[in-house]
Structures are given as C-alpha cells and as structure tokens.
C-alpha cells in the first residue's frame, strides 16, 4: 500500500518535472542575459584572466567561493572528528 502510494507520487513528480522542463527556453538559445554578456566582454580587462569561469568563481562571485571553502573546511573537520570520537569511545569502554 505504501509502495503504491509512493509510486503514484513519484510518477506525478516525474510528470511535473518533465512538463516543467518543456517550458524552459529551447536548448542552445538562452534568453538574452545582460550579466553574462557583460562578464564575457569585460572579464579580460577587469580581472586580467583569460578564463572567464575562473574570474567569475574567484572575483565576481568570490563570496560564494568563500562559502564553498567554509563548507569544505567544515565537512573535513566533521569527518575527522566523527572518525576520532568513535575510536576514543571504543578505547575507553
């Protein structure tokens, strides 16, 4: 019973997703975006970097990358902490 309800919900969700994808702009012809055109045109002069993606990641959107670095740091700290706490508990008991 639960499985049937889940399947129906899943089908509804899949139909919803696919029908939503059909409303997106046609593939290969995005709507005109001033921001992207500006960045592609001026990235070389403003940041001096040939790679526009690198200049977006580190310069125009540097704050996002700072958050990403924080997440990576926190995740690594969490992994090391979890694996070590387990070991200490086993040794103590």
């Amino acid at each position: 019973m639960r499985r049937a309800i889940g399947l129906i919900l899943l089908l509804v969700l899949a139909a919803f997703l696919v029908s939503g994808m059909l409303l997106v702009h046609p593939f290969g012809a995005p709507y005109p975006t001033d921001m992207d055109d500006y960045i592609i045109e001026n990235a070389q002069n403003q940041t001096g970097s040939n790679s526009v993606v690198a200049s977006v990641v580190f310069d125009y959107r540097g704050l996002d990358t700072l958050g990403e670095a924080t997440i990576l740091f926190t995740a690594v700290t969490g992994v090391l902490l979890l694996l070590r706490a387990q070991k200490r508990k086993e040794g103590g008991s």
Binding site: T47, G48, S49, A54, F58, D59, T65, A69
Partner: peptide
Amino acid sequence: TGGFIPLMNFAV
C-alpha cells in the same frame, strides 16, 4: 596575468 586569481587557485 590574472591578478590574484592564480594565488587564489593555489590556496584552494
């Protein structure tokens, strides 16, 4: 070239 982008790449 690139300003601080190479240094940032190095740090990351």
